[in-house]
Design a protein around this nucleic acid. Structure first.
Lengths: 334, 334
DNA sequence: GTCCCGTTTGTATACGTATACAGAATCGTT
DNA sequence: AACGATTCTGTATACGTATACAAACGGGAC
């Protein structure tokens, strides 16, 4: 391995000078700089990341924690996060699935292996997160949010989004409806459910217990649950799923039975991932600005790295109902 | 930050002893070990990753390079890679999109920021890869492969897979067919295309130039291209896409025109991603064992880290045609 | 010519850990 | 009782870089 000392020797300067050329400080004579750069090129010098990290106390790496990368929502978020962080000169380490991800990511902060972490799927492990926060660990929560947790958080207004769906169904006279949630301890599912169920109640169409389900955010569980639901005597007029991925499962359950939306049952999702607009699904859904949220979260974290004592920000993005073919009369659809 | 020296002081031993407890060498008196561990717990000691990396010359990080994480094939591969590498005690840094990904990943090796890299989308940038290889950089190619490149490589038998499709279409008398490739310099697309087109020719049904397309592996391009194709006077009897993601685009192009597979045109994909089996697509496709390939590639890399002079392995997995509803008479499906 | 100031460079050291080496302590063997 | 063998621990140093400090140098201004 070629070190800065080797470069120094070849260029006829001290190691410190080589280091200064790297950090491109201003106090370098132009010709010394050229000499050193020539030597670096000649030797193919590349600084040792670990050594730099040790001295500067910065790894230039950000961690991102995701639960199920197979859910198309997360690739979209990741896509945006990697772009944004890459542009800022940071690398991204990814934690996917595995119950221990949150813990591992926090450990990585303490090891100084990463400078900060973006959690997309925070839930109840608040204890450990809280401890980390008290040690001023740079942490940002995207998508899922933890009430009363004093860290930067970015989410969409899930309660309002859920209410949007209720209003829409009410307006179209679809009152006998089912709700399929994700995980009970995920703020997204909880808030969307609450916003939806509360508004339905207000509107005079309370959703009975036996029409409320949990399907852990996955396509397969949602397909299964919807299947059971459809096999009952009475079919609901609409199904609202807490994310698009489950809505796809609901649509698939219909198709498998030779039924379809919107003819036999309306289906509504949440997120508006790219796939939702594909003709195969043509899914009515609540759009949250996922990519913008990702960018915003990345920026918050980067800001916090330079100013650790910034007051924590809670940013909430508005949502919008996108009506497509899986609801409404076919004539209404695009 | 609490260092090993702090632990040493509290435990009343030398820093070296603390380090030895960490590496859990055998030569440690049981009670010293307990004392040290107690001190570590008391102080909440966590070793500094950068310092360790500098001394041991191992970062315990593996890089993974992916082109478009939005293509559902890659999340499946990533899912498996992260699991496997995580289990082996490695973290994963992800490079996504961005033309410079390959270069950045190779730089990271030279910076010793990562111990090795798994490329899933290698193409023609052989020059730089070749240089890296000559410096014995631990590199593994998964999925896409580069001819005559002396590194570990894992792929499926794409030529045979393409031929499978030709045989199948011939058997069912579908001879007027189109091919939609990905990128011309990707081995996957090239080999699948070659296997398919050559076999079609052998069988007496050469595919004319005007029925061969490139759609850069993306849903949207494939949908667009298929759209143009369908708007012609004569509709092909089948469309073979070089991956599932494009096949979904082809199906969507049909749907948008009120057409469908298999009635109006057969559609065949490649990969057999999870989504291919969803009732909404019900896609006939060539299954390659993506997850097994990912595991295999991860193991190759891990092996190479401990034995850098191992001869490079080229592993090729067989493929299998999975017939579903997007081809054949509906009766045949499911 | 002297003095002061600003620029540029070298010297020395620190970051936190791992490990070669040597010394101390323990044990069994003769 | 003396010896070597064995086990355990401490001392010292190295990994590769960044940076505080001091030194050297040159250029004006008087």
């Amino acid at each position: 391995m070629v070190t800065s000392r080797d470069v120094a020797r070849l260029a006829g300067v001290s190691q410190a000078t080589v280091s200064r050329v790297m950090s491109s400080a201003t106090n370098i004579a132009p010709d010394t700089r050229l000499k050193v750069q020539a030597a670096m090129d000649a030797l193919g010098y590349v600084p040792h990341a670990g050594a730099q990290a040790m001295k500067t106390r910065r790894a230039r790496i950000i961690g991102v924690v995701v639960k199920d990368i197979t859910n198309p929502f997360y690739p979209e978020v990741l896509d945006e996060l990697t772009r944004e962080l890459d542009r800022a000169g940071y690398r991204v380490v990814l934690w996917n699935a595995g119950g221990g991800s949150h813990h591992d990511a926090l450990t990585a902060i303490r090891e100084r292996a990463v400078d900060g972490v973006i959690f997309t799927t925070a839930t109840g492990e608040t204890v450990e997160l809280q401890v980390a926060l008290e040690q001023k660990s740079p942490i940002v929560l995207i998508n899922r949010v933890v009430e009363g947790f004093d860290a930067d958080q970015v989410a969409s207004d899930n309660v309002a989004g859920g209410a949007l769906v209720a209003d829409y169904l009410h307006t179209h006279g679809r009152t006998q409806v089912a709700f399929i949630g994700g995980l009970p301890d995920a703020s997204t599912s909880r808030d969307r459910g609450r916003g939806f169920l509360d508004r339905m109640q207000e509107l005079g169409h309370p959703v009975p217990e036996e029409l409320r389900f949990q399907a852990d955010f996955s396509h397969d569980r949602a397909q299964h649950v919807t299947g059971q639901l459809l096999d009952r005597a009475e079919r609901p007029a609409a199904i609202f799923c807490a994310n698009d991925y489950m809505a796809f499962g609901a649509l698939d359950a219909l198709r498998r039975r030779g039924l379809s939306a919107p003819q036999d049952c309306w289906v509504i999702g949440y997120d508006d991932v790219d796939m939702a607009s594909w003709p195969s699904f043509d899914l009515t859904t609540v759009r949250q600005p996922s990519r913008e949220m990702a960018r915003s979260g990345a920026k918050m974290l980067l800001d916090r790295l330079v100013a650790p004592d910034l007051p924590p920000q809670h940013r909430r993005f508005p949502c919008k109902l996108i009506v497509r073919g899986s609801t409404g009369s076919p004539a209404e659809g695009s």
